[in-house]
Amino acid sequence: MPSPDASLFKPELVFFDLEADDAPGLFDALYERLSPMGYVKGSWPEAIKEREANYPTGLLMPGAPIAIPHVDPEHIERPYIAVVKPPHPVTFEFMAGMGDPVAAELVINLGITREGGQVQVLQALMDLFGDAEAVADIMAQTTGEGMVSAIVSRFGE
């Protein structure tokens, strides 16, 4: 399998200050950041809210409860991966209804395009979040640079 495209992770796409009471609120707050940088289209907020409501993405990984919301490529301007560590956990329904809702401590929004290497990235992230020690390091990060490094440096291990 080709290596995941680490360039999709950028310090400018790591957010520690997005306050939200629920997932739709988090998407609104994230849109306010992503839209000016030209990553998403105007249709993105409604599209991702509907998608998350119909096909939820909360996961209870060994190291932390997380969510991996994403939406169809038509709502994406250019590929990206945003990493959100909200000040307070945000509730996401469990993927495929396989468990109770999770209080997500980290939200990774995959800006998917058909050409992008997101499959490799998603697999690499799942491998990473299966490793409790790696997750502890990721969850301890307080800067965009630190977060990108904590994730990307472990790809391909």
């Binding site: 399998m1 119909n54 998917i112 499959v119 998603l122």
Partner: peptide
Amino acid sequence: ACGSGIATSQTVANKV
């Protein structure tokens, strides 16, 4: 199958 057929499902398909 997943919502789009290109992210989650493709990842699972490759793995399986």
